[in-house]
């Protein structure tokens, strides 16, 4: 249509995207700054990357965060998939309203509330049944899984809604039982959403400061917690270097996942259009 001619919308969009990207770009540029001051350019250098790699506190926290993020993403993807299946496929069941409420509330619940309530639960449980013993990676993971599940469920729900159910019906018609249908038909079809959901949960966990601060123990500071305490003291070029690494890794991962999903999407499309869906058994 006359998209190109709508200068008002175009310039407003340009402003919006500049707003989104300029801060990140500046961060990346100043991570290569020689000087300690973040606002004065003193020449190119990669020395802050070296400092970062030698910083044991940051490296240790990063390792904890990575472990939590991987476990969280995996559990949340399983739970989120089950929850999405229940929401999309089970129609009206008893307690559906409560279930859908619990599934969407974490999307908007302020972190401080989630963090505080999770902590109080863990404390009460420990008093009552002696588990979890103290707080650390386990409690952080449980708290993260709880809110990540909601995000994963949203992603997978939309994929399930868009899925052609007749493929599953055809598999059942050909004699596959529900569990088999789920494994050989449903899972492959929603695979892109599973990947997206996993990555989303991974990122959410790696990103979380507030909830982790509540439920972590003394020896389990996550990366955001270490970054936060350092940032509170002011801007540091080392954090700029860390930020750059995180931005690059995230961008590469997302681009890669997007590319792979796009390919898979086209493959699925080509296959279904030619009606060459392989049937097992």
């Amino acid at each position: 249509m006359n998209w190109r001619r709508d200068w008002f919308t175009l310039s407003w969009m340009a402003f919006g995207f500049a707003f989104l990207y300029v801060p990140i770009l500046l961060l990346v540029i100043y991570s290569f700054n020689e000087g300690r001051l973040v606002t004065v350019w003193a020449g190119w250098s990669t020395k802050w990357y070296g400092e970062l790699l030698r910083d044991e506190q940051i490296m240790g926290a990063a390792w904890i965060s990575l472990r939590v993020a991987v476990m969280n993403a995996t559990f949340a993807t399983v739970l989120g998939t089950l929850a999405a299946l229940a929401m999309v496929r089970f129609g009206a069941f008893r307690g559906r309203t409560l279930f859908s409420g619990m599934l969407s509330a974490p999307l908007v619940m302020p972190d401080v509330i989630t963090g505080l309530s999770s902590l109080l639960l863990f404390v009460a449980m420990e008093q009552l049944i002696g588990w979890p013993e103290g707080r650390g990676i386990t409690t952080i993971t449980i708290a993260h899984v709880t809110f990540s599940t909601a995000y994963v469920a949203v992603v997978i729900q939309s994929r399930l809604v868009g899925m052609d159910r007749s493929i599953e019906e055809a598999a059942m018609d050909l004699g596959a039982r529900p569990a088999k249908v789920f494994l050989v038909i449903t899972i492959p079809v929603i695979a892109p959403a599973l990947v997206a959901g996993w990555l989303l949960a991974f990122t959410l966990s790696l990103d979380d400061l507030v909830i982790a601060s509540f439920v972590s123990g003394p020896a389990s500071s996550t990366l955001p917690m270490v970054v936060f305490s350092s940032v509170r003291l002011g801007v540091s070029p080392e954090i700029n270097a860390l930020a750059t690494i995180l931005v690059v890794v995230a961008s590469v991962a997302i681009l890669g996942a997007g590319w792979a999903m796009n390919r898979q999407e086209r493959l699925t499309k080509a296959l279904t259009e030619k009606r060459e869906i392989p049937v097992e058994g």
């Binding site: 990140i24 100043y30 606002t39 990103d207 955001p224 940032v231 801007v235 995230a250």
Partner: peptide
């Protein structure tokens, strides 16, 4: 591409994106 560009910052650390504004 534009949709992708809107979503991309969301995948990078929230804390760091807030931090980026301090220097600005």
């Amino acid at each position: 591409i534009l949709l992708f560009l809107v979503v991309l910052p969301f995948w990078t650390s929230f804390l760091i994106r807030v931090y980026a504004w301090i220097g600005i």
